[in-house]
């Protein structure tokens, strides 16, 4: 059987890639995509631990289902906000949308 740490390392690497995207991309939709990558990394960890821990029930997988639900809701609302931003500012680059920034 594959060691647990392989899955955890994969999760960490995916999380790092997603975090780099969130911190550096200018396009708001690209930032949303990077957030989805990070949520996926968390799900990999949840499911790996739920599979490998002795005496574990399927609680980790139930958590992953809730994470997926929240990710879907977040994507819908986030993209609606992006559409609203584009209508008002004619750009989706987050560093140009600084009306409330002092």
């Amino acid at each position: 059987m594959i060691p647990l740490s392989y899955y955890l390392v994969l999760g960490a690497v995916l999380f790092g890639i997603g975090m780099f995207g969130v911190l550096t991309r200018r396009n708001a939709i690209a930032i949303l995509m990077a957030i989805e990558l990070m949520l996926n990394a968390v799900n990999v960890n949840f499911i790996a631990l739920s599979r490998y821990l002795p005496n574990s029930t399927l609680d980790g997988q139930v958590f992953a289902i809730f994470v997926i639900t929240v990710a879907a809701a977040e994507a819908a609302v986030g993209l609606a906000i992006v559409l609203g931003l584009y209508r008002n500012f004619h750009t989706v680059n987050v560093d140009e949308i600084n009306l409330m920034k002092w």
């Binding site: 899955y7 396009n27 939709i29 949303l32 995509m33 989805e36 996926n40 799900n43 499911i47 790996a48 739920s50 599979r51 997988q61 992953a64 289902i65 997926i68 990710a71 879907a72 994507a75 819908a76 993209l79 992006v82 559409l83 584009y86 989706v92």
Partner: peptide, 30 residues
């Protein structure tokens, strides 16, 4: 990881739902 139900959910919701939504938003804005 023997989580076949979650694999199906992943394909249905992420691949089938969220990415299509993202593509729609990209086409409408960028």
């Amino acid at each position: 990881l023997d989580a076949e139900f979650l694999a199906a959910v992943q394909v249905l919701i992420y691949v089938g739902g969220i990415t299509i939504l993202l593509l729609f938003a990209i086409m409408l804005t960028t």
